[in-house]
């Protein structure tokens, strides 16, 4: 029950009235117009809330007759490869492998390595490192003498990072992608 001044509708007291039959949508027009006033949007005239958007799964039966799909109750999101490849989007970068020093670790020229800067290297991590201003990808080994950058290809020598070298780990390689 509404109290107080009517927002819309009503009639001047002196005029005569007449009872009519109307389809419900028209009879309820007054209420919808009230919504229109509130929202200032013509779409309010329609019996839907215009600002609501919903993603509808593509799978699912829309047959009005026949047996409903047994999968309808078990709809799931499609696989998102980002979930598999990226843990922290802000700190994740992609790098193209150019050299052959890491082929035994499965990093071949042309592959894309995923590098996460938020990960701290541990003994045995594959890292993208900066050594004296040059990028290199190697396995990170902590040795008593300091850091050893280990190649994964017998043709390449390991590098013992000297005290005076300008060295930093740019990020940790977490995945690799290869186009077959």
């Amino acid at each position: 029950m509404l109290h107080g001044r009517k927002g819309i509708g009503g009639r001047p007291r002196s005029e005569p009235t007449k009872v009519v039959r109307l389809p419900l949508p028209i009879a309820q027009l007054g209420a919808r117009l009230a919504r229109l006033r509130n929202m200032g949007d013509v779409a309010a005239l329609l019996a839907v809330a215009p600002w609501k958007q919903a993603a509808v799964p593509l799978v699912g039966s829309n047959a009005a007759c026949g047996f409903p799909s047994p999968a309808d109750d078990h709809l799931d999101r499609p696989l998102d490869f980002n979930e598999l490849l990226i843990e922290n989007p802000a700190s994740t970068f992609a790098v193209r492998i150019a050299g052959e020093s890491m082929i035994s670790a499965g990093l071949f020229p042309g592959d894309i390595a995923i590098v996460d800067r938020s990960r701290r290297p541990t003994n045995g991590s594959i890292v993208l490192a900066l050594l004296d201003g040059e990028f290199t990808i190697k396995r990170y080994r902590m040795r008593s003498g300091g850091v050893l950058l280990q190649a994964e290809n017998p043709a390449f020598a390991d590098i013992l990072v000297s005290e005076e070298a300008n060295f930093e780990v740019w990020g940790v390689v977490t995945r690799s992608i290869r186009m077959l």
């Binding site: 970068f93 992609a94 790098v95 193209r96 492998i97 150019a98 050299g99 894309i112 390595a113 993208l128 990028f135 290199t136 990808i137």
Partner: peptide, 10 residues
Amino acid sequence: TTRWDELLAV
């Protein structure tokens, strides 16, 4: 960071 063909190559 926005083009596959312009990635940093290492």
